[in-house]
């Protein structure tokens, strides 16, 4: 890769970084569209039998799992708009 191409790549990477951190969508002609999908925090409940003291033995224990929100980077290739090639970071 030539120097000018490397220089161009750096500028492109920087532009994509800035857009995604700002939550903006960025279309790269020939490649596709970068965007951010926000996934809100989640609460999950899970039941289990208690092994605790007698006071709680009769009641089923439930575990609460709280997941913080997350921004997920999405990329949709330009030529494959009919398919969703979204890649999630997790």
């Amino acid at each position: 890769m030539s120097k000018s191409a490397m220089h161009f790549e750096l500028a492109l990477v920087e532009a994509i970084h800035e857009a995604l951190v700002a939550g903006d969508e960025l279309f790269v002609p020939g490649l596709g569209t970068f965007s951010i999908h926000h996934r809100p925090a989640k609460i999950q409940m899970r039941s289990e039998t208690s092994a605790g003291d007698s006071r709680r033995k009769s009641a089923a224990q439930q575990a609460t799992i709280i997941e913080p929100p997350e921004n997920i980077i999405s990329f949709v290739a330009e030529s494959d708009d009919d398919i969703i090639p979204e890649f999630k970071t997790r």
Partner: peptide, 29 residues
């Protein structure tokens, strides 16, 4: 299909607001 796999640094950068938050697991609480 052209797919994109972001680097961990980029993922961390876009989630800078939630860096201090952790997944919590509470039993019967």
């Amino acid at each position: 299909i052209l797919v994109f796999e972001p680097e961990a640094g980029l993922v961390s950068a876009v989630n800078y607001k939630y860096r201090s938050l952790e997944t919590l697991t509470l039993e019967g609480g």
